[in-house]
Simulated assay, not measured.
Amino acid sequence: MALLEVEHLNKSFGATSVLKDISFSLDEGHSVAIIGSSGSGKTTLLRCLNFLETPGAGRITVAGETLYDGTAVTDEHALRQKRLHFGLVFQSFNLFPQYTALENVTLAVKLREPSKSKWAAIDAHGLELLERMGLADRAGHYPHQLSGGQQQRVAIARALALSPDVLCFDEPTSALDPELTGEVLKVIRSLADQHTTMVIVTHEMAFARDVADEVIFMDGGVIVEKGPAREVIDHPREERTRQFLARYAQA
């Protein structure tokens, strides 16, 4: 049974239609990679899933609970509750510079837990997450003391701290130097091995092919092709997909 279901999602900015009738589902423990050129709607789709943008129409369901049914959600408390279903890792880390790595990981959890007697357990869990990221010895470091790859791994730990149903990545390596990209992809690969449910917007085609269960190719705000990752990357059916992958191979 699908954990995430997206049905007929649409989003426009003024007269510009950015998402057009987007539908897909994702089983628990599976990952889907979303590929496509800049401006194809990939990031807007993630922002709609996380309620950082409000879709214009459609339906979003997680674990059988309808989070969006075409009606705008204006209550801030309700929005925060819906966002808890998703964790989002941004391109540019978005860590708080005044907080240590551990504080960045635990801040949101502590804000939801008024009882300070439970904060020690929250810190312990935060340290466990940093250890999973290979950063146990960096818990007390501030973002400016960390490499870009280390900052992104802290951001992944922060997203995991709230135990989201679905973990979303918005081109998590695009702001990194090539030598730092591998360490972040290694973490995401390990999450896939642990059957973390993930939506990954990426420009790393080989990574998408080898790690994701499915691939969605978007162009012009529509899903052009979707299917098993290796099938879509190695044997695309649609001409637009073939042209995109050929351009990528020549880059």
Rank of each mutant, 00 (worst) to 15 (best):
E5C: 04
E7I: 02
E7Y: 06
K11W: 02
S17M: 05
L19E: 12
D21Y: 05
I22C: 08
F24K: 07
H30P: 00
S31H: 03
A33E: 10
I34N: 13
I34A: 15
I34C: 12
I35Y: 11
S40K: 03
G41V: 01
T43Y: 15
T44M: 07
L45V: 11
C48D: 06
L49G: 03
N50K: 12
F51W: 08
E53S: 02
P55A: 07
P55E: 06
A57E: 13
I60W: 14
T61H: 03
T61A: 09
A63I: 06
A63N: 12
G70N: 13
A72W: 01
R80H: 10
Q81I: 13
K82W: 00
L84W: 02
F90R: 15
L95H: 05
L95D: 11
L95C: 06
F96G: 04
Y99A: 13
T100I: 10
E103V: 05
N104K: 12
S115F: 14
K116F: 09
K116L: 07
K118D: 08
K118C: 04
W119Y: 15
I122R: 10
I122C: 03
H125L: 15
H125Q: 09
E128Q: 09
M133L: 00
L135C: 10
R138G: 14
R138I: 09
A139N: 06
A139P: 09
H141K: 11
Y142E: 11
Q145L: 02
Q145Y: 01
G149K: 03
R153G: 11
A155Q: 14
L160R: 04
P164Q: 08
P164L: 00
P164C: 10
P164H: 10
V166N: 06
F169S: 08
E171D: 14
P172T: 07
T173S: 14
S174R: 06
L176A: 04
E179G: 11
L180S: 12
T181H: 01
L185P: 01
L185R: 15
R189W: 02
A192C: 01
D193F: 08
Q194D: 15
H195C: 09
M198D: 05
V201P: 07
T202W: 13
H203T: 14
F207D: 01
A208I: 12
R209S: 03
D210Q: 11
V211K: 07
D213F: 04
V215S: 05
F217R: 06
V222C: 12
V224Y: 10
V224P: 07
E225A: 09
A229W: 03
A229H: 08
D234F: 05
P236R: 07
T241F: 10
T241L: 07
R242I: 11
R242D: 12
F244V: 10
L245H: 08
A246P: 00
R247T: 01
A251W: 02
